[in-house]
Amino acid sequence: MPDKPQDPAALPSSRWSRRTFLKGVGVAAVSAETMLAESTKAVEPSPPGADALNTPIEGPVKVTLNVNDQARAVTVEPRTTLLSALRDRLDPPITGAKLVCNEATCGGCTVLLDGKPVFGCSVLACDAVGKKVTTVEGLGTPDKMNAVQKAFVEKDAMMCGFCTPGFVTTISALLAKNPNPTEEQVREACRGNFCRCGTYPHVFAAAQAAAQANRK
Protein backbone atom coordinates (compact mmCIF):
# COMPACT_ATOMS: atom_id res chain seq x y z
CA MET A 1 0.00 0.00 0.00
CA PRO A 2 1.35 3.41 -0.81
CA ASP A 3 0.15 4.92 2.41
CA LYS A 4 -1.01 3.70 5.76
CA PRO A 5 -0.60 6.76 7.88
CA GLN A 6 -1.39 4.98 11.11
CA ASP A 7 1.52 2.59 10.68
CA PRO A 8 4.54 4.40 9.33
CA ALA A 9 6.95 1.71 10.50
CA ALA A 10 5.36 -0.76 8.12
CA LEU A 11 6.10 1.47 5.18
CA PRO A 12 8.81 0.62 2.75
CA SER A 13 11.59 3.10 2.71
CA SER A 14 13.78 4.17 -0.11
CA ARG A 15 16.58 4.88 2.35
CA TRP A 16 17.26 8.19 0.76
CA SER A 17 17.78 11.36 2.67
CA ARG A 18 17.16 14.62 0.94
CA ARG A 19 20.90 15.18 0.91
CA THR A 20 21.56 11.87 -0.84
CA PHE A 21 18.68 12.50 -3.16
CA LEU A 22 20.09 15.83 -4.23
CA LYS A 23 23.47 14.23 -4.61
CA GLY A 24 21.94 11.57 -6.83
CA VAL A 25 20.12 13.88 -9.18
CA GLY A 26 21.33 13.41 -12.70
CA VAL A 27 23.24 10.21 -11.98
CA ALA A 28 22.05 7.49 -14.28
CA ALA A 29 23.14 4.51 -12.23
CA VAL A 30 23.97 4.49 -8.55
CA SER A 31 25.11 1.41 -6.75
CA ALA A 32 22.61 -0.05 -4.33
CA GLU A 33 25.24 -0.25 -1.60
CA THR A 34 25.40 3.51 -1.37
CA MET A 35 21.72 3.69 -0.76
CA LEU A 36 21.52 0.71 1.57
CA ALA A 37 24.21 2.30 3.70
CA GLU A 38 21.83 5.09 4.52
CA SER A 39 19.97 4.46 7.74
CA THR A 40 16.25 4.79 7.84
CA LYS A 41 13.85 5.82 10.53
CA ALA A 42 10.40 7.29 10.64
CA VAL A 43 10.24 10.58 12.41
CA GLU A 44 7.30 12.41 13.83
CA PRO A 45 6.58 15.81 12.38
CA SER A 46 8.70 18.47 13.96
CA PRO A 47 7.13 21.66 15.19
CA PRO A 48 8.10 24.59 13.02
CA GLY A 49 11.04 26.49 14.42
CA ALA A 50 14.78 26.79 14.32
CA ASP A 51 15.37 23.30 15.71
CA ALA A 52 13.25 21.71 13.04
CA LEU A 53 15.19 23.50 10.34
CA ASN A 54 18.45 22.20 11.71
CA THR A 55 17.33 18.60 12.14
CA PRO A 56 17.86 16.50 9.05
CA ILE A 57 14.89 14.28 8.30
CA GLU A 58 14.88 11.15 6.23
CA GLY A 59 12.72 8.14 5.54
CA PRO A 60 8.97 8.09 6.05
CA VAL A 61 7.57 11.06 7.90
CA LYS A 62 4.08 11.25 9.29
CA VAL A 63 2.64 14.69 8.68
CA THR A 64 -0.75 16.31 8.76
CA LEU A 65 -1.74 18.42 5.80
CA ASN A 66 -4.56 20.90 5.87
CA VAL A 67 -6.23 20.22 2.53
CA ASN A 68 -9.46 21.95 1.57
CA ASP A 69 -10.10 22.74 5.25
CA GLN A 70 -9.65 19.14 6.35
CA ALA A 71 -6.80 17.79 8.46
CA ARG A 72 -5.39 14.85 6.49
CA ALA A 73 -2.77 12.61 8.05
CA VAL A 74 -0.34 11.22 5.52
CA THR A 75 3.05 9.55 5.55
CA VAL A 76 5.50 11.04 3.12
CA GLU A 77 9.21 11.08 2.53
CA PRO A 78 11.13 14.32 2.83
CA ARG A 79 11.45 14.35 -0.95
CA THR A 80 7.76 13.65 -1.60
CA THR A 81 6.16 16.53 -3.43
CA LEU A 82 2.91 18.04 -2.28
CA LEU A 83 1.40 16.88 -5.57
CA SER A 84 2.47 13.30 -5.00
CA ALA A 85 1.25 13.40 -1.40
CA LEU A 86 -2.20 14.47 -2.59
CA ARG A 87 -2.42 12.06 -5.50
CA ASP A 88 -0.31 9.05 -4.55
CA ARG A 89 -0.32 8.90 -0.76
CA LEU A 90 -3.50 10.36 0.67
CA ASP A 91 -6.18 7.72 1.04
CA PRO A 92 -8.61 8.49 -0.48
CA PRO A 93 -6.54 10.60 -2.85
CA ILE A 94 -7.22 14.15 -3.99
CA THR A 95 -6.65 14.11 -7.74
CA GLY A 96 -7.92 17.44 -9.04
CA ALA A 97 -4.37 18.75 -9.38
CA LYS A 98 -2.79 16.87 -12.30
CA LEU A 99 0.69 15.51 -12.82
CA VAL A 100 1.76 16.75 -16.25
CA CYS A 101 5.45 17.59 -16.27
CA ASN A 102 6.70 17.23 -12.66
CA GLU A 103 9.21 20.00 -13.39
CA ALA A 104 7.35 23.27 -12.92
CA THR A 105 6.77 24.01 -16.59
CA CYS A 106 3.04 23.49 -17.19
CA GLY A 107 0.81 24.58 -14.29
CA GLY A 108 -1.35 21.44 -14.40
CA CYS A 109 -0.66 20.82 -10.71
CA THR A 110 -1.44 24.32 -9.50
CA VAL A 111 -2.81 24.43 -5.95
CA LEU A 112 -3.16 27.28 -3.51
CA LEU A 113 -0.81 27.45 -0.54
CA ASP A 114 -2.25 29.95 1.90
CA GLY A 115 -4.17 31.35 -1.03
CA LYS A 116 -1.16 31.77 -3.28
CA PRO A 117 -0.93 29.66 -6.45
CA VAL A 118 2.03 27.27 -6.46
CA PHE A 119 3.06 24.29 -8.56
CA GLY A 120 2.28 21.23 -6.44
CA CYS A 121 5.13 19.36 -8.13
CA SER A 122 7.66 21.86 -6.86
CA VAL A 123 6.63 22.16 -3.22
CA LEU A 124 7.70 19.43 -0.84
CA ALA A 125 4.84 17.96 1.17
CA CYS A 126 6.78 18.61 4.38
CA ASP A 127 7.00 22.29 3.50
CA ALA A 128 3.21 22.47 3.16
CA VAL A 129 2.71 21.41 6.78
CA GLY A 130 1.07 24.18 8.75
CA LYS A 131 -0.17 25.87 5.61
CA LYS A 132 -3.60 25.87 4.06
CA VAL A 133 -3.65 23.79 0.89
CA THR A 134 -6.55 24.40 -1.48
CA THR A 135 -7.05 22.28 -4.59
CA VAL A 136 -9.61 22.79 -7.34
CA GLU A 137 -11.98 20.51 -5.38
CA GLY A 138 -11.80 22.98 -2.51
CA LEU A 139 -12.92 25.88 -4.69
CA GLY A 140 -16.31 24.43 -5.48
CA THR A 141 -18.25 21.27 -6.26
CA PRO A 142 -20.36 20.43 -9.32
CA ASP A 143 -23.44 21.49 -7.35
CA LYS A 144 -21.83 24.57 -5.89
CA MET A 145 -19.21 25.86 -8.28
CA ASN A 146 -17.34 29.08 -7.69
CA ALA A 147 -17.69 31.85 -10.25
CA VAL A 148 -14.60 30.76 -12.17
CA GLN A 149 -15.73 27.15 -12.42
CA LYS A 150 -19.19 28.26 -13.54
CA ALA A 151 -17.71 30.55 -16.16
CA PHE A 152 -15.42 27.79 -17.44
CA VAL A 153 -18.48 25.62 -18.06
CA GLU A 154 -20.50 28.41 -19.64
CA LYS A 155 -17.71 29.58 -21.96
CA ASP A 156 -16.55 26.06 -22.83
CA ALA A 157 -13.08 26.86 -21.52
CA MET A 158 -12.05 23.22 -21.68
CA MET A 159 -11.77 20.31 -24.02
CA CYS A 160 -9.92 17.27 -22.67
CA GLY A 161 -10.01 19.09 -19.34
CA PHE A 162 -6.62 17.99 -18.03
CA CYS A 163 -5.31 21.56 -17.75
CA THR A 164 -8.63 22.90 -16.45
CA PRO A 165 -8.01 22.45 -12.69
CA GLY A 166 -4.75 24.37 -13.02
CA PHE A 167 -6.32 27.24 -14.93
CA VAL A 168 -9.35 27.39 -12.63
CA THR A 169 -7.11 27.51 -9.57
CA THR A 170 -4.78 30.14 -11.01
CA ILE A 171 -7.64 32.38 -12.12
CA SER A 172 -9.51 31.95 -8.82
CA ALA A 173 -6.39 33.19 -7.03
CA LEU A 174 -6.03 36.06 -9.48
CA LEU A 175 -9.60 37.23 -8.93
CA ALA A 176 -9.16 37.08 -5.16
CA LYS A 177 -6.28 39.51 -5.53
CA ASN A 178 -7.51 41.50 -8.49
CA PRO A 179 -11.30 41.34 -8.92
CA ASN A 180 -11.22 43.32 -12.13
CA PRO A 181 -8.34 42.06 -14.27
CA THR A 182 -7.74 43.05 -17.86
CA GLU A 183 -7.30 40.25 -20.40
CA GLU A 184 -3.58 41.04 -20.37
CA GLN A 185 -3.49 40.46 -16.62
CA VAL A 186 -5.32 37.16 -17.04
CA ARG A 187 -2.80 36.08 -19.67
CA GLU A 188 0.04 37.14 -17.42
CA ALA A 189 -1.39 35.26 -14.42
CA CYS A 190 -1.81 32.09 -16.52
CA ARG A 191 1.47 32.21 -18.39
CA GLY A 192 2.64 29.23 -16.33
CA ASN A 193 -0.32 27.14 -17.45
CA PHE A 194 -0.28 25.19 -20.69
CA CYS A 195 -3.27 23.86 -22.58
CA ARG A 196 -2.70 21.61 -25.60
CA CYS A 197 -6.25 21.32 -26.92
CA GLY A 198 -6.25 25.07 -27.56
CA THR A 199 -8.89 26.40 -25.19
CA TYR A 200 -7.07 29.67 -24.39
CA PRO A 201 -9.53 32.11 -26.02
CA HIS A 202 -12.40 30.58 -24.06
CA VAL A 203 -10.28 30.57 -20.88
CA PHE A 204 -9.73 34.32 -21.24
CA ALA A 205 -13.45 34.82 -21.84
CA ALA A 206 -14.27 32.71 -18.78
CA ALA A 207 -11.95 34.74 -16.56
CA GLN A 208 -13.64 37.95 -17.65
CA ALA A 209 -17.11 36.43 -17.18
CA ALA A 210 -16.20 35.19 -13.70
CA ALA A 211 -14.89 38.61 -12.71
CA GLN A 212 -18.11 40.15 -13.94
CA ALA A 213 -20.23 37.59 -12.06
CA ASN A 214 -18.26 38.26 -8.86
CA ARG A 215 -18.96 41.97 -9.16
CA LYS A 216 -22.71 41.41 -9.28
Binding site: T95, G96, A97, K98, G140, Q149, F152, V153, G161, T164
Partner: peptide, 17 residues
Amino acid sequence: DGAAKATGTAIYTQDVR
Protein backbone atom coordinates in the same frame (compact mmCIF):
# COMPACT_ATOMS: atom_id res chain seq x y z
CA ASP B 1 -19.25 17.06 -18.31
CA GLY B 2 -18.05 20.63 -17.91
CA ALA B 3 -18.85 20.89 -14.20
CA ALA B 4 -16.98 17.66 -13.44
CA LYS B 5 -13.93 18.90 -15.33
CA ALA B 6 -14.02 22.39 -13.81
CA THR B 7 -14.22 21.07 -10.25
CA GLY B 8 -11.59 18.34 -10.50
CA THR B 9 -14.14 15.58 -9.98
CA ALA B 10 -13.77 14.15 -13.49
CA ILE B 11 -11.64 11.04 -13.03
CA TYR B 12 -8.86 10.48 -15.53
CA THR B 13 -6.78 7.35 -15.98
CA GLN B 14 -3.92 8.77 -13.93
CA ASP B 15 -6.35 9.54 -11.07
CA VAL B 16 -7.34 5.91 -10.60
CA ARG B 17 -5.61 4.13 -7.71
